[in-house]
Amino acid sequence: MSDLKPLIETTGLVKKFGSFTALNGVSLKVYPGEVHALLGDNGAGKSTLIKILSGVFPPTEGQIHVEGQPVSFASPRNATDAGIGTVYQDLALNPLTSVTRNFFLGRELTRFNSPFGLLKMDEMHQIAIQEMAKIGINIADPEQAVGTMSGGQRQTLAIARAIYFGAKVLILDEPTSALGQKQQMEVLKTIRQVKDLGNIAIILITHNEIHARLIADRFTFLSLGEVIGEGTAKDLQGDDIKRLMAGGAEIGDLAKELAAT
């Protein structure tokens, strides 16, 4: 698919917080129908990059292009409108209300388009069920409270919601952390389904190189705010991934270091 144009491209992103340089010239290309794994240790700059992409704060230098057009975001809302959907770790769900109410939270379908117009509940139920089925989760009862759903189902709900409301680039922030083994597989399956839709670019932030290897087509490794390695799944061998994950150090080196202390 490398003949396609990248859906989102960053060139030389720099982010400075006062004297601290969080990102030092990061360039990234993400293609539609691809899972792009963003790997790196804690403090490597993953979160900063994600926050720039989702409009939480602007970069100090550098440019973002979405579908070839230069964009700049003043707020998360701008990023959403430009087609960048971010699914955060806490998923932004209200566990006490129903699937449908969460699916349409903040963008409810109402009569007369007014906050006090009646909700089109039937239509919303239908869309929620349909959209979640598209990425592989069948919900028996759209009135079911989100709190009663499994972690994997919640992730699916958040992803389906982002896609339905126009996300072309889907940023998944540690979607498999804090989940059980089975639910992690469920989430990976969901990501695969989204990938198979073909028109959505997925940026997957993760700590877990096994998950990344299972699902990702392309890898970018960050360390100390810089890209220290990138490539497609074919290019990279298992050991490369491990080494790059640890910020370029060999496991063997680490063992020596440990032994020395």
Partner: peptide, 28 residues
């Protein structure tokens, strides 16, 4: 009753109390 159970305003009230950050993140 109509406002709380049947309108957008009602969903906003529930989500504001149920998970404030989620409500904010979704533009409520």
């Amino acid at each position: 009753y109509i406002m709380l159970s049947r309108t957008q305003a009602g969903n906003w009230i529930y989500s504001t109390g149920g998970n404030l950050n989620a409500a904010k993140a979704n533009g409520v």
